[in-house]
Design a protein around this nucleic acid. Sequence first.
DNA 1: CGATAGTTTGACACAGCTCAATAGGCGTGG
DNA 2: CCACGCCTATTGAGCTGTGTCAAACTATCG
Lengths: 242, 242
Amino acid sequence: MTVRQDVHSDDIPVLCQSCEARHRGVCGALDPDQLVALARSSSKHKVEPGAELMGDAEAIHSYSNVLSGVVKLTKTLSDGRQQIVGLQFAPDFLGRPLKAENVISAEAATAVSLCSFPKVTIERMMKESPGFERRLFSQALSELDEARGWMVTLGRKTASEKVATFLLMIARNIDPTRDPAVNFAAFDLPLTRADIADFLGLTIETVSRQLTRLRTDDVIRIENNRHVTVENLSRLERRSGA
Amino acid sequence: MTVRQDVHSDDIPVLCQSCEARHRGVCGALDPDQLVALARSSSKHKVEPGAELMGDAEAIHSYSNVLSGVVKLTKTLSDGRQQIVGLQFAPDFLGRPLKAENVISAEAATAVSLCSFPKVTIERMMKESPGFERRLFSQALSELDEARGWMVTLGRKTASEKVATFLLMIARNIDPTRDPAVNFAAFDLPLTRADIADFLGLTIETVSRQLTRLRTDDVIRIENNRHVTVENLSRLERRSGA
DNA sequence: CGATAGTTTGACACAGCTCAATAGGCGTGG
DNA sequence: CCACGCCTATTGAGCTGTGTCAAACTATCG
């Protein structure tokens, strides 16, 4: 385990000073010099909900850190059926390393801010900093664990368990500063009913009915279709089939 | 097995000489000296179908290369519902790097032969050989791509598409020396109907009915319940919803 | 306000599940 | 070699959870 250096903030690029990716993200592996080098070719930008960030079967030119907002990773069958295969939150790293072409698409689910880097910069950093590559590796393995967790949900859970599992996942991920011990959560759903359906392998109608059921059973409250309050996360968890 | 003292750089351990993992697997990244070092603490062994290779929530003590046979990776819900979240074939690397505990179980689906290494050996090799870590990283990313591919199958395909997709995957993976261009395949199913059901999020009966349908539609032939012949893989692919 | 997009609700259909019976493969022992 | 038992796979009949189609409702915004 590498010990984080005691770094004075004036050594760190302005761009990176309050960046979540420097703390829990891939940039946490870099020393100030490397941060400066990386920051030189990075660019921060914001995109609107619905913006396409990567296209399936498209050449990869850049990678990004997600600084805020939620990114959908999707796959689509030739006849249009769609499946969301992952969600990314700050400070996740976006983009498929070690490949020339994407096999999935990425789209902003909410307003998203990103810190992007040219492909070559990331490749150089991977070569020069073993710690950086290690962080990318580690994130890939976490995403693999997650994807396999969703395989269980998709293959073996009922519609109501799926919806409960989804809400639980959002509650746990949407606020990077959230204390996991707290048994209460309130958040805006980052996805529309159609997106939730595409994530859970259901239809919009079924998602809506299951949400209504959770609401009438007093497990959750919903305001303005988007804002969800969960008084008792354990209660929701018991409904998730875990 | 004795290793010679004065190893020239072109000397490869006997153990590794005809090993698939040295060609397409993680050991391909190692030079002869490193292979010797690794081989010193490795052990080859065979296990019966059904043998448990890793347990969920169990501390990790070793990693392995799959040399032959098929390994099921499974996750189980508390009430017993099971989902297969991946299959491993030669020369895949088995075990979750960068973690102290497993989050999945692994079981031999067929007779399996393995080449195993203590945890510390793999960890040392990862530190000392960037190429070795790179290969592990690369395999993790491939497994991630695959898992996401299965998410689409589980969430969005019909039962008959699922079964066709499964057969196609087996046809393409079971024989490491197979030419991808050939449009014909014949193989023994490495999984029982129950396993296939657990992989595809279906019941045994539905799997059986869909296989019968593929058989009566002359897309496949089945002998002795296990041996499958596919005259025309493209035809099968058209049934897979790809 | 009206227009639009997203969501909920209802009625009904059907793919895949459940339960039950039958058939087939394979090892063991007479 | 057959007979038996065991396990796995197939087939059938009926049920149910989720999908489909359609209509009504709600939030948001010009």
